[in-house]
Amino acid sequence: MTVNTEPQALISHLPKADGSATFSYAGYTVVGAVNGPIEVQRRDELPEEAAVDVIVRPAAGVGGTRERHLESLIQSTLRQIILVNNFPRTLIQVILQIIVAPENEYVNAKITQASSNLPILPALLQTAILSLLSSTLPLTATLTSTALAIVPDQGGSNIVLNPTAREVEQSQSFHVFAFTSHNELILAESEGSFTMKEWDDVYARAYSQCCPPALSSDNDDAMIDDQRSAGSDLRHFTRSTMEQKIVSDLYWK
């Protein structure tokens, strides 16, 4: 199994959707499509804001209860970010199709699983954000999300960023955090057994990962070296991806 360490994205590659993106990072690849604002079914219509509908489709099989769980988490998060009040009585539909998910080679994979699938949440959120940016819907903020695991390691324990499926299985606890571009915590999901102190440590690590200090032009090199050691700077990645897209779109001018 090859795990690409650098995030990759393709923006606005689906011609029929209002916005679309393919995002791959840490072994996951997700295609996202956003349609909106579009007409909403009468029973889902909200008089003062847009209804946000998230559909998560697994790589194999049809969606089950765990996809509903992911959908409800992503829906409540995106609703805070999209300016839903600008589009009353409409629908904003976000479709996320999982293409590749890393497998644990040590166990037989089951297609239908009822347990929650938190490790994929960062990839889904990141794809949703890129798709929303591609659809040019007004947002209050973007977000960056990361997954961490506390893995036992010779007497002590170690915080592992973007853990593999095997590391998640062996971990004492597993955490997903998402931060807005205003450095606020918007989503936190933790499973396993841990103490408040461990949670604080993991939070600090996630914060430094998702909310890096802004890059200034004069000490670029030192900053980039720092981030290389800690993993990829997803916020910077989102920004540079969109900048590149805009530059290529405006080339004809």
Partner: peptide, 15 residues
């Protein structure tokens, strides 16, 4: 011992 934390839907709650 904390066994789970699940927070979603807003930005009010910090550490």
């Amino acid at each position: 011992k904390i066994l789970a934390i699940s927070k979603s839907g807003g930005t009010t709650v910090g550490p």
